[in-house]
């Protein structure tokens, strides 16, 4: 594996870490009062409630979108991590290994992720209120996620231009990693924070549920 993989992975991890630290630092400096309302208990209560599929009313009202979205997020992490090819590469570099997913299963789930992304695009195109909120950047973000999966799928099946597809796969994956801390993909760390704060305000101060 070339150095770009490590650089992009480090940018992703450190970028998110730095972002997290900056947020906490800014809260401490400018909005310290927020800290007096946050409790671990109510933060976790809210986060867990929202992690249980179809528990919040909001998610039950949109079961298709929420179901697809939930699976999509799970697969987004599980697929690359438990993919044989990736494990082999990690193993070569670090001598670490863990059980890999069945290739056929991975193949089907990849199609699932691609389908979910296509669904997101269609939703953005055809549901009026979502369309109203959508900007060009939203499609770019979807494309950024789509590319590594599509290229990975094509590479596995060695359909066409194998070499170029693999290069595209590697590059698009690296770009995605690099972009995460600097884009709305960073909701992977900010969403738990906003959830924790709202969960605490609702649970700790307002004695109400927020799901």
């Amino acid at each position: 594996m070339g150095p770009m993989v490590w650089i992009s992975a480090l940018i992703c991890i450190f970028g998110l870490l730095v972002k997290f630290i900056l947020i906490i630092k800014e809260v401490y400096e400018k909005e310290r009062y927020l800290l007096s309302y946050i409790t671990v208990r109510h933060s976790l209560r809210s986060i867990i409630a929202w992690l249980i599929p179809f528990y919040p009313r909001s998610t039950r009202m949109r079961p298709v979108y929420y179901g697809i979205s939930y699976l999509f997020h799970v697969l987004l992490f599980l697929l690359p991590v438990f993919l044989m090819s990736h494990i082999v590469l990690i193993n070569e570099s670090f001598n670490l290994s863990w059980p890999a997913m069945n290739d056929t299963a991975a193949d089907i789930l990849t199609i699932g992720v691609i389908f979910a992304l296509v669904f997101f695009v269609l939703r953005r195109r055809f549901i009026p209120d979502v369309r109203f909120l959508t900007s060009f950047m939203d499609y770019i973000l979807i494309l950024m996620v789509l590319l590594p999966f599509v290229t990975g799928f094509l590479a596995y099946h060695q359909v066409i231009l194998y070499k170029w597809i693999v290069i595209a796969h590697v590059l698009s994956g690296e770009v995605l990693l690099i972009v995460i801390p600097f884009s709305r993909f960073s909701h992977m760390i900010t969403a738990p924070l906003t959830r924790a704060y709202t969960g605490s305000e609702f649970g700790n101060i307002r004695h109400a549920r927020d799901w």
């Binding site: 090819s85 082999v88 590479a155 596995y156 099946h157 060695q158 194998y162 070499k163 693999v166």
Partner: peptide
């Protein structure tokens, strides 16, 4: 050097 270059289907 790429996987599929040796493990050709």
């Amino acid at each position: 050097v790429l996987c599929g270059e040796c493990h050709i289907k």
